[in-house]
Every structure is written in structure tokens, then in C-alpha cells.
Amino acid sequence: MLNCKETTQLASDRFERRLTLTERMNFLMHIMMCPFCRRFSRQIGWLHDLFHKASTLPDDQLAAIGQKLPLDRERLARALRDQDRQ
């Protein structure tokens, strides 16, 4: 029987690699009995989905974040113009 620390490691590993059959069985057996690891496992799945959402933000939302940080456009444009002079 796996302990909770090992079980949560496997819950996380599911996003990184394919678990072996034995690992899957041990994992399922543990979360059937342990509400805490069951919650953990479900919640990191939700977080994973939210990360995916955040990593694929549409351009207009990215621009909204960028606009809040005053980007020195003049300096940037100057840096580009300088390239052409070299």
C-alpha cells in the first residue's frame, strides 16, 4: 500500500508520463480509501487546466496585461533603428 506522499507524487506524474500498470493500480487503490489524496488529485487536475488556459490567452488579453506595464516604445523603436545603422 502506498502512503500519501507517494500517492500524490503519482497523481502529479500522470501529467508528465504514463504510469505503469502497477502504479495505476496502487494509485487507484489508495485514492479509493483516502479522501485527502482523492481531493489532491482532482484539484491539481483543475489547476492544470487553469494553467493551460493561462498559457493560451488570446492576444487581446495579453495586450491588456502588457498595456499596464508602461513599455518604453520610443526606446524600443530606437533600438530597432540602430540595428539598421550598424
Binding site: 495579453l62 502588457g66 513599455l71 523603436a77
Partner: peptide
Amino acid sequence: RWVEIHGDVLMGYAML
């Protein structure tokens, strides 16, 4: 113009 079109989006992307 290039900075204006792309600057904010790239900045948002990098900041995240």
C-alpha cells in the same frame, strides 16, 4: 509601428 503592433502582446506574454 512594429513596436506598437506587437509590443504589448509580447510584453504580456513575457510577464506571465
